[in-house]
Computed example of a mutant assay.
Amino acid sequence: MVGTYGYMPPEYAVHGRYSMKSDVFSFGVIILEIISGNKIKGFYDSENSLNLLGHAWRLWIENMPLELLDTHLFEMCISSEVIRSIHVGLLCVQQKPEDRPDMSSVILMLNGEKLLPQPKAPGFYSGKSSLEATSLSSNQMSLTIFEAR
């Protein structure tokens, strides 16, 4: 298996299957990197235990998408265009290939020529679940949760 860490879609990284929308996933990662000013490989939100995709998703569902924007770009950007770009980026990095748009739709979405569906959680999203929050029980037994890199 070859590919650059962080840009490989889940279906390829986990199962070695390449889909027609694998490149769409990588493009979505790049969109979110440009907006945030952070690289996928070097970003980690330690407070919430999230990578860049999870961090972008958390801000999106908490209705704070502009907090993803690199502070150096804040004064130069039109907020509606930034929000649209984040929205498209999140659509591109969805877990299942069938939920991602194709590249021709991505172009129309970025140009404002196509309605945007609501995104689902991105691939490799590792938000805290109730199971993870209770990883230590009263008898101090540990629980390991395996996740793809």
Rank of each mutant, 00 (worst) to 15 (best):
T4I: 08
Y7T: 03
Y7N: 07
P9K: 00
Y12T: 03
V14K: 07
V14R: 12
H15L: 08
H15K: 11
R17A: 05
S19D: 15
K21D: 02
K21F: 01
D23E: 06
D23C: 06
V24E: 00
F25Q: 05
G28A: 05
I30D: 07
I31G: 03
I31E: 02
I31D: 02
L32T: 12
E33Y: 03
I34D: 04
I34C: 04
I34V: 15
I35E: 01
I40Q: 13
I40Y: 01
F43A: 07
Y44N: 08
D45F: 00
E47R: 09
N48K: 11
S49D: 14
L50Q: 14
N51V: 00
N51T: 04
N51R: 03
L52D: 07
H55F: 10
A56L: 03
W57S: 11
R58H: 09
R58Q: 13
W60R: 05
W60C: 09
I61W: 03
I61H: 11
I61K: 14
I61V: 15
I61Y: 05
E62D: 14
L66K: 10
L66F: 13
E67I: 06
E67M: 14
L69C: 14
D70S: 05
H72T: 15
H72D: 14
L73Y: 10
E75C: 12
E75W: 09
M76Y: 15
M76E: 15
I78L: 07
S79I: 02
S80A: 11
E81M: 08
V82W: 01
I83D: 04
R84V: 00
R84A: 03
S85M: 07
S85R: 00
I86N: 10
H87I: 04
G89K: 02
L90R: 09
Q94C: 09
E98H: 02
D99K: 08
P101M: 05
S105K: 12
S105N: 14
V106W: 05
I107K: 09
L108P: 02
L108R: 12
M109D: 07
E113K: 14
P117R: 02
Q118F: 05
P119A: 03
P122Q: 10
P122G: 10
P122E: 11
G123W: 00
G127Q: 08
S130A: 11
S130E: 13
L131N: 15
A133E: 14
A133P: 10
T134W: 04
S135Q: 11
L136I: 12
S137I: 05
S137V: 07
S138F: 01
S138G: 13
N139K: 12
N139Y: 02
Q140F: 10
M141E: 15
M141K: 13
M141H: 15
S142W: 04
T144D: 11
I145M: 11
I145H: 06
E147W: 03
R149N: 15
